[in-house]
């Protein structure tokens, strides 16, 4: 008999990813309505110390799967151990963050369990006893609500930074259950890992993002954005135009063919606001646009707009914010 909501507790380098807390908070709400409990699965090497903290965010149980072979994410090993755990516990739903890892793992596990999977959801709720997910399609130009009526578990990945995190209940602990791992054979070998060293937050997790487009006119001018990012503690993003021009790496592209972000504040400088860009950032809470073209499409989506030369606006903005924050 299926029971409970299971959350994939994503961690990297010994730190729980924020989306895990978002998942737990959301799961707690639906579990309460369904009269079920919330559990989490934590996978890695030397991660058991992280398990208890998950209780404060709403996990009743935490399954810990530890193994040397699980230190870094591999599709094969993680699929094997997570799918086994899900099979044994038969949860009603299994939720993951829509990160690179979560998306990769979810597809494999869903297929192994012969179930459905809704990707990149922005809301989850209970309606008529069913868990209903909301997700954008066609690059955010339409929204669907959908369920998985029969197959179990119901599976979904949830877009990071969209759902709220409830205040943690200090001292609340979770039942920690160590699960022996049958890692199985890992067919891929990691030859090298290239980490992007950046003191700034990751785009998909950042609360504030400052992005530049064609109007930045050249790679050297991204310094203006970096200065602003420094005072805001923001991540730096870019539009496709800036990436295609070779000014900045593809890894910071926001939009349909780049990353989908939902920060509290998104500042678009010299970005015209093509639909492909909006697809990646329109779920941001506050959008600010700086563009010298008063007709630029971006102003239609912006909460605040400044029509003016970004080369004049950005330095002043950086100084003013520095003053306010001082």
């Amino acid at each position: 008999m299926a029971k409970g909501i299971l959350v994939f507790a994503e961690q990297r380098d010994g730190k729980i990813k924020k989306v895990t807390y978002e998942l737990l908070s959301a799961s707690k709400k639906i579990a309460n309505q369904l009269g079920e409990e919330v559990s989490a699965v934590l996978v890695g090497k030397g991660v058991s110390a992280l398990a208890n903290g998950l209780g404060e965010y709403g996990a009743d149980k935490v399954y810990v799967i530890e193994n040397d072979a699980l230190e870094n994410y591999t599709t094969d090993a993680y699929t094997n151990v997570v799918a086994d755990l899900v099979k044994q516990n038969e949860p009603t739903a299994f939720l993951l963050g829509c990160s690179i890892t979560g998306r990769d793992l979810a597809a494999q596990v869903a297929q192994r369990l012969d179930t459905g999977l809704l990707t990149d959801c922005i809301n989850v709720a209970v309606e008529n006893g069913q868990i209903v997910f909301t997700r954008p399609i066609y690059a955010g130009k339409a929204i669907i609500t959908a369920t998985i009526p029969e197959a179990r578990p119901v599976m979904a990945t949830i877009r990071p930074n969209v759902l709220p995190v409830d205040e943690p209940q200090a001292g609340k602990s979770a039942e920690v259950i160590n699960v022996s791992a049958n890692v199985g054979s890992i067919r891929t070998t990691v030859k090298d890992v290239i980490r992007q060293v950046s003191a700034r937050p990751e785009l998909t997790e950042a609360d504030v993002i400052v992005s530049g487009g064609r109007g930045m006119k050249g790679p050297e001018n991204f310094k203006l954005l970096e200065d602003l990012a420094d005072v805001l503690g923001a991540a730096v993003g870019a539009s496709r135009a800036a990436v295609d021009a070779g000014w900045v790496p593809q890894s910071i592209q926001v939009g349909q063919t780049g990353k989908t972000v939902s920060p509290n504040l998104y500042l678009a400088a010299g970005i015209s606001g093509a639909i492909q860009h909006l697809a990646g950032m329109s779920s941001s809470k506050i959008i600010v646009a700086v563009n010298k073209d008063a007709e630029a499409n971006i102003f239609k989506s912006a909460d605040y707009g400044v029509v003016g030369d970004l080369f004049e606006v950005l330095p002043v903005l950086t100084q003013e914010i520095k003053k306010l924050k001082a």
């Binding site: 179930t115 999977l117 954008p136 955010g140 339409a142 929204i143 669907i144 998985i148 329109s282």
Partner: peptide, 11 residues
């Protein structure tokens, strides 16, 4: 299909 779409809407 395992997934059932309940509704479509525009944002």
């Amino acid at each position: 299909a395992k997934v059932k779409v309940l509704s479509y809407s525009l944002p």
